[in-house]
């Protein structure tokens, strides 16, 4: 006879989340955009619309005979600067989007990438960073994540800090790992620590935002950042951002928030930020069980999902007037 013995806390389980085919981001809103007035929003949505349509068409082709599930989202910065209020901003945002033929299914607050429902998605991602090792890394050097910077290669030794103590160090160029002959070296600041605690950088929160949209984050096996429906019966939007859940579902018939892939339509000035996002995404080791779940589900649906997480995020950058 074979006996099995299992202890619940010794054997974790990972929950899955519902997934759309595509998470389509219609924009980020920062204070400067808001300050420029409703006209700026209208202008942005007008530019976003053709790309949003193209993304829908493209995913419809990839989803085959199935009806494509596409959810749209919009991110408002309430982390770096606080401006306006949900009561004032959200109705205007929805009206401008609608006037341009766009529907915003989900609205997220950027601070939700730092803290949401008692969970800290950003610190959770930080704990999963595994730096791409420069050639010659044998495990004996401590991780440089303590310094809060992440790069895509080997830093210039003169700028490296610690080793300079051993004597005069000749300057050498930094090198991108896996560069095609010439390097495009990038060093991204992930956070800084001040008197009032840690402030995550915009690119790092943007990387967390991508991972949330890809449905790849869990805390002790449970999903992070669940959408809270905000229908007519909930009444007006609150006067303070803190009273709005980090992620609200504005369209009751929307497809699931998280998706196999993301597509973000952004002004060109976000290009450096999103380059940094790719660098971060390329160095996050996600939970095996979550990746496996997603891959198996996509397989059953006959939908192709790239194995590398970086390749699941696509963009259109448009020029601003």
């Amino acid at each position: 006879m074979e006996t099995t013995f299992r202890e619940e806390s010794a054997d974790p389980r990972t929950q899955s989340v519902p997934l759309s085919h595509l998470s389509l981001e219609l924009g980020h809103l920062y204070m400067e955009d808001f300050a420029a007035g409703a006209g700026r929003l209208r202008e942005q949505f007008t530019r976003v619309k053709p790309w949003a349509d193209a993304a829908r068409l493209s995913v419809a082709g990839a989803a085959g005979a199935r009806r494509p599930r596409v959810s749209t989202c919009f991110l408002v910065d309430d982390y770096f600067t606080r401006f306006s209020s949900p009561a004032e901003l959200v109705p205007m945002l929805l009206a401008e989007a609608e006037a341009c033929g766009l529907t915003i299914d989900y609205l997220a607050r950027e601070s939700g990438c730092a803290t949401a429902d008692g969970v800290e998605p950003a610190s959770l991602v930080e704990g999963r960073l595994v730096e791409s090792p420069p050639v010659g890394s044998n495990g004996s050097r401590p991780a440089v994540r303590e310094i809060g910077w992440l790069c895509n290669g080997e830093r210039s030794p003169a700028a490296g800090g610690g080793e300079a103590m051993s004597g005069a160090t000749a300057w050498a160029a930094p090198a991108e790992t896996g560069a095609r002959r010439h390097s495009v070296f990038m060093d991204v600041e992930l956070w800084d620590d001040g008197d009032r605690g840690r402030t995550w950088s915009c690119p790092f929160l943007a990387a967390v935002w991508q991972l949330l949209r890809l449905g790849l984050l869990r805390r002790e096996g449970r999903p992070v950042l669940q959408a809270v429906p905000w229908g007519g019966e909930r009444g007006a939007f609150p006067r303070s951002w803190d009273d709005l859940p980090p992620l609200v579902q504005l369209n009751p018939s929307a497809a699931p928030f998280a998706a196999y892939g993301t597509f973000s339509v952004l002004p060109s000035r976000f290009l450096p930020v999103e380059h940094a996002v790719r660098l971060v995404l390329g160095q996050v080791a996600l939970e095996e069980a979550v990746l496996r779940q997603t891959a198996e589900r996509a397989d059953r649906e006959g939908f192709a999902v790239p194995p590398a997480v970086t390749d699941r995020a696509a963009y259109a950058f448009y020029a601003e007037p």
Binding site: S9, P134, V135, N138
Partner: peptide, 22 residues
Amino acid sequence: RFSERPNMYAVSPEVLTGVDCA
């Protein structure tokens, strides 16, 4: 992960380190 049978035994989450060497 924590287990009490047959003795008290706790296991940390795993930590990954990238290497590129001989």
